[in-house]
Design a protein around this nucleic acid. Structure first.
Length: 765
DNA sequence: ATAGGGTTAG
């Protein structure tokens, strides 16, 4: 704190050097005038100063009305009086009133212009700021610095650099402005080059560079900067402490905490959230209790920690105990209740809270949507406008992405309609959200309609529709999108190529995929990343070239991650290579010990090759390691509701109708030649498992329910949280043919379009 | 007495 004061006071003396000169000139003028005027004018001037101070103080405590009343009552005002009003209004977010003052004032001085300029910048109106800057009768270094930061804050890094180069003079604020422009926009290499180009950076600039490295998770670079600092203020220590806490190095964080010269609420809160992020709730609570002073951020961090650990009672106790909960505290509680499935408590708090912002509404809407209450979600969306909360583009984007997550197509369509009515359909943000919603909800044709109608498509739009086709199993279509994209002059990026390679993989185009993979550096300047390699391993594996896949993995320039091993495991499963599958699964267990899906995959692999002893061992291993199999469930949207099914579901109101329909289907399937693969492998399975296998899986129940409720001619869209079961996959192919319906199933990995006895995945997934 | 930059905790 002391260092910060030293720093600020040196700035202040710099800042005041000019006014002091002006003042002495004023005094001089005044003395010469005194021959003609009598004392009152001197008295009036000191009165003006007094009222200026009073205005500033009123504004500082937010009493704009009192300031305005005082201003109106004055008989004499100087330009400082006007400037104090303008600046006060701006700092109280009363932009319109500030603007009116600026227009009305009789004589504007340089400060008036600078105040307005920074007002526009803070208001995010860069265009107006630029116009004002051009209109200014004169400019000083303050004007230039304001404009520089305006460009930087709005992401115009190169323009900021041009301003910096055009500046007649530069001071430490200007240098810091350019550095911050790079850091804020993630251009750390440029920031570093600038930083190394000169000495004598201010402490804030050191902090700025260090903070940039922390945000990029480049903790070693951050620490090097910290160690090189000759002068450190509290912010420097706090940044470094939170960096160590974030990456789980709590011992080191604690060491710096103990060594830091002064600890403020930031320092303490950084330690609390460090422990929370690493799941150490008790330690976090201990530090929290020891904190000498807490503010709402500290309380909210602790509350969020409890709610993430599903301890809503503890979270609630803290919430009730905290002195002044702010809007974030309420939002944290609502989100916590909603995510823990307690929608009633969430709604109760939502109704009680004094003010709601767009985050409160989004949390509540998402809560309803995720707990299968789409009607309430939509009606809340409608209520929002009535409550006075403006529905803006980001609200639509947020609601659409909720629809996408839960594949609520009907709800999504209604939101689409409202988006259109509100005039928000144009623009990439909402357009891409719509596009993604239709893709993820399984309606690839509607996604394409949106895509075609988009006036301005960016690379994200192209990537979304391309990956959409690939995930739906329409590889050829995905590749033709890729060609149109190139023809439209849009440069493919890394994400595009992931889509292209996975399209080739899903379509079995091994040679074409390899060509793209090996030529993308030359053609588009894209270096293969882990995802590209994973696609290639998947592609080779699918084609049965397991050795090539293994070799590619051996030769890739980075360590394989769980997804890469997963691709190899998938291939071994299809081609029955138990040895390779075992190796891959072991690697995945090491990296993701909680990944229950892998135990299931591996034990299925054993079962397929008749190794029943190993299947049993897997079961024991799973039990001993405490991993809980994630229960599989499926859901379907019908009659404005989301219907959820679990294996052998006994809760659904229409279960009897569904089960008898499945019996009937079973007979017809057998006539067509269907043999249940589960029944083939039953002979060596324990009783409990047998029963499990004989019961209908959730996806089959949902499909049957869909056929019974969704009007003929419309596809049946089902979503499953895990991968589709192989037996159900076969069964649904038969069912699609028997009843003449299209079934679109989204599982945790991709889409399956079942139609006339076939699936778009080509039985590889 | 009025004006410019930046960094840390939810």
């Amino acid at each position: 704190m002391r260092l910060r004061q030293v720093h600020n006071s040196s700035l202040r003396s710099l800042r005041s050097s000019n006014p002091r000169i002006t003042k002495s000139l004023d005094t001089h003028k005044h003395v010469s005038n005194e021959k003609h005027f009598n004392k009152p004018s001197l008295k009036t001037d000191s009165d003006i100063v007094k009222s200026n101070i009073a205005i500033t103080n009123y504004m500082r405590i937010g009493q704009c009305d009192s300031a305005q009343r005082l201003f109106d009552s004055l008989s004499k005002r100087s330009s400082v009086t006007w400037n104090a009003m303008i600046s006060g209004y701006l700092s109280n977010n009363r932009f319109e009133l500030a603007h009116q003052m600026f227009d009305k004032m009789p004589e504007r001085d340089l400060v008036s212009w600078n105040v307005m300029l920074s007002g526009y910048v803070k208001n995010g109106n860069l265009g107006a700021a630029k116009l004002l800057f051009d209109r200014m009768p004169e400019r000083d270094i303050v004007s230039w610095n304001s404009l520089l930061s305006g460009y930087a804050q709005n992401g115009y890094v190169d323009e900021a650099k041009m301003i910096f180069e055009r500046m007649p003079q530069k001071n430490s604020i200007s240098w810091n402005g350019l550095l911050a422009a790079y850091v804020q926009n993630g251009r750390m290499e440029d920031a570093r080059r600038l930083f190394d180009s000169k000495e004598d950076w201010a402490v804030v600039s050191w902090n700025c560079l260090m903070g940039g490295y922390v945000r990029k998770k480049r903790f070693i670079d951050a620490r090097r900067i910290f160690d090189r600092m000759v002068v450190r203020d509290e912010v420097s220590w706090n940044t470094m402490i939170s960096a160590h806490a974030q990456c789980g190095e709590l011992m080191e964080a604690q060491k710096l905490f103990d060594a830091s010269p002064k600890r403020d609420v930031f320092t303490w809160t950084a330690m609390v959230s460090g422990y929370l992020q690493n799941g150490m709730l008790d330690e976090a609570k201990k530090v929290f209790d020891e904190m000498p002073e807490k503010n709402s951020v500290s309380w909210n961090a602790m509350i969020a920690g409890y709610s993430q650990m599903k301890s809503m009672d503890m979270a609630r106790a803290l919430f009730d105990a905290m002195p002044c909960p702010n809007i974030s505290s309420w939002n944290t509680m609502i989100t916590g209740y909603a995510q823990n499935g307690d929608i009633a408590h969430a709604r109760h708090l939502f109704n009680q809270m004094p003010h709601r912002d767009s985050i409160s509404w989004a949390a509540m809407i998402a809560g309803y949507a995720q707990s299968a209450h789409s009607e309430e979600a939509l009606s809340l969306f409608v209520d929002m406008k009535r409550d006075g909360e403006r529905i803006n583009r980001s609200t639509f984007t947020c609601v659409l992405s909720t629809c996408a997550d839960i594949a609520a197509l009907e709800l999504g369509k209604q939101v689409h309609g409202r988006t259109f009515k509100a005039g928000f359909e144009s623009g990439c943000f909402v357009g891409n959200a719509l596009l993604a919603m239709y893709c993820k909800c399984g309606s690839i044709d509607e996604a394409y309609d949106v895509f075609e109608d988009m006036a301005d498509k960016d690379v994200v739009s192209w990537n979304t529709i391309l990956a959409g086709y690939a995930r739906h199993g329409f590889g050829e279509k995905a590749l033709s999108i890729f060609n149109s994209m190139k023809a439209a002059g849009v440069k493919p990026d890394e994400v595009t190529m992931v889509g292209v390679l996975s399209a080739c993989s899903h379509t079995g185009l091994v040679d074409k995929g390899s060509d793209y993979f090996y030529s993308m550096t030359r053609d588009y300047g894209i270096t293969a990343n882990a995802k590209h390699y994973t696609c290639m391993i998947d592609l080779l594996g699918r084609a049965g070239r397991l050795n090539d896949a293994k070799n590619l993995m051996k030769n890739m320039p980075f360590e394989p991650d769980a997804a890469t091993w997963g691709a190899l495991l998938g291939a071994s499963r299809i081609y029955g290579d138990t040895e390779l599958g075992e190796k891959a699964a072991q690697m995945i267990f090491q990296m993701e010990p909680d990944n229950a899906g892998m135990y299931v995959l591996l034990s299925n692999l054993y079962a397929a090759s008749g190794r029943w002893g190993d299947v049993g061992k897997m079961r024991l291993k799973m039990r001993d390691s405490g991993v809980k199999k994630v229960p599989g469930y499926s859901w379907i949207e019908a009659q404005n509701k989301i219907h959820t099914f679990s294996v052998g579901d006994a809760l659904h109101p229409q279960r009897e109708r569904i089960y008898s329909f499945l019996e009937e289907l079973d007979l017809r399937m057998k006539k067509e030649g269907y043999v249940s693969s589960t029944k083939l492998v039953l002979h060596d399975v324990e009783e409990e498992e047998k029963e499990h296998m004989l019961r209908h899986h959730s996806e089959k129940l949902a499909v049957a329910f869909g056929i019974l409720t969704i009007p003929a001619g419309r596809p049946i869209r089902v979503i499953k949280n895990l991968r589709v079961c192989a037996d159900c996959h076969t069964a649904i192919k038969y069912i699609s043919k028997i009843v003449g319906r299209v079934v679109i199933l989204r599982d945790s990995h991709r889409f399956h379009h079942f139609s006339d006895g076939l699936c778009s995945c080509g039985d590889y997934w």
